[in-house]
Simulated assay, not measured.
Amino acid sequence: MTDPLTVRVPLDGARAYDILIGRGLIDAAGPHLAALGGRAAGIVTDETVAPLYAERFRAALERHGLRTSVVAVEPGEGSKSYAHYARVCDALLGMRIERGDLVVALGGGVVGDLAGFAAATLRRGVRFVQVPTSLLAQVDSSVGGKTGINSPHGKNLIGAFHQPRLVLADTAALDTLSEREMRAGYAEVAKYGLIGDADFFGWCEANWRGIFSGGPEREEAVAACCRAKAGVVTRDEREDGERALLNLGHTFGHALERIVGYDPARLVHGEGVAIGTALAFRFSARLGLCAGQDAGRVANHLALAGLPTRLQAVPGGPGDADALLDAMAQDKKVRDGALTFILARGIGQSFIAPGIDRDAVRAFLQDELAAG
């Protein structure tokens, strides 16, 4: 194992933490977690990740004196529910996890959100470590302290900000992902360039295949995304302003996830983000904010990487314009009933656009649905 790359999240005081990025970190996790203190680690994972990594991870921690137990949930968004949250909390309490111990999320974004929310509320706050095993989690959801579960009313509507003490991004874990999962995670990689770094988006256009194949581009991309997110989180930890930019594509994407009932057979998060990002750029072009050429460039790149960019790509259909608008009404960025979108003046020039007229969104969606 070569020395990992390190990205610092420089929050105030003791809340600052490191993101370590490299191959082999799951097997080398023991000294990193032991250095945080505590006598025990409650490991939350899912039934897909557990057979691959749970025993190796447990052994790595126990070699350095940590008592460990594992709770595994079903994979997929369905586990971000009240019932699974209660089950995880009860399991961690049954493990005798104390405030000075660790709750560890070993898995993708769903596990991170669920375990993080449990850590935030268990005994009014237990220390938390992220060990993300998906590309999406490594570049986005494991960093920044947003945790939560879903409600029948919408995604991530119950949660808390609870920063991790450490993030270990083992890029070798991505070797076991399906091609679909890699593509879905890549939507979040491209997003960082589209938000505020046109040069990084250009780099992605030239190097995305190396990210997928596991070349040095993979670590470089994860580190670049983590540096970008660390900067945003440091400036706006609780999403009072700039951090909302990280939701580019998510207003449309979360609505689509809700429409399909969070069914991964029909749509996974990154696919919804890809469609939503393409829609956000086409909507921006329609409003005269950015060039149609930029919207086309974004959609073409996402499609080249194997991602969907049209509403019609949702298996079983995305519903009608009114159904999509109703789903958007539960978005966390809604203020006083008015829709807020992340729109763009060009590649790398995204901005927060509050108070978007619902009729304009409805007309746009109707035209998108009719485009075929």
Rank of each mutant, 00 (worst) to 15 (best):
H162Q: 05
G125R: 01
A244Y: 01
E74Q: 14
R218K: 10
G78T: 04
Q138G: 08
H269G: 08
T2Y: 05
G148M: 05
L5I: 14
A329M: 14
F281M: 11
A285T: 09
P264K: 08
A54L: 08
R362M: 11
K146N: 10
R123V: 10
G348F: 07
A34W: 12
D175W: 04
D170G: 09
L289C: 11
L92C: 11
G316T: 13
T2W: 07
D263G: 09
R165M: 13
A28E: 15
E181G: 13
V260Y: 03
Y262K: 02
K146W: 08
D331Q: 11
Q349H: 13
D199Q: 13
G288T: 14
E47I: 00
E257G: 07
K191V: 12
Q349A: 15
R123G: 04
A265N: 09
L168I: 12
D331N: 11
H32Q: 15
L267E: 10
E257S: 05
L136D: 03
A344I: 03
W203H: 07
G288W: 13
L311N: 03
E257H: 08
E98V: 04
G249F: 05
D294M: 00
L157V: 10
E179T: 14
R335K: 14
D240C: 11
L279P: 02
E188W: 03
F212G: 00
I275C: 08
V268D: 04
V139I: 09
L66F: 07
R258K: 15
E239Q: 04
P315R: 10
Y53E: 04
T277K: 02
Y262C: 09
Q293Y: 00
A54D: 02
L20K: 14
A371I: 03
I26P: 01
L302A: 11
A274E: 01
L66V: 07
H84N: 14
N207T: 14
I158A: 14
R345F: 07
I21T: 06
A223S: 13
L248W: 06
A360P: 00
I158S: 02
Q138R: 08
F341D: 00
A278W: 01
V232D: 01
E47W: 00
A327I: 07
E239G: 00
G202M: 01
A59W: 00
Q330L: 03
V110M: 05
A295T: 12
I195C: 06
H269V: 09
L369K: 04
E220V: 11
R266L: 15
K155H: 13
R243G: 10
D199C: 02
L61I: 09
E217H: 07
F117K: 04
T45Q: 08
I347Q: 03
E239R: 00
L289K: 02
G215L: 06
T251R: 01
L256M: 10
S69I: 00
R258E: 12
D90G: 13
R96T: 15
A313P: 01
K333G: 13
P315F: 10
A28R: 15
M328E: 07
H269P: 10
V298L: 08
G109E: 07
P75N: 09
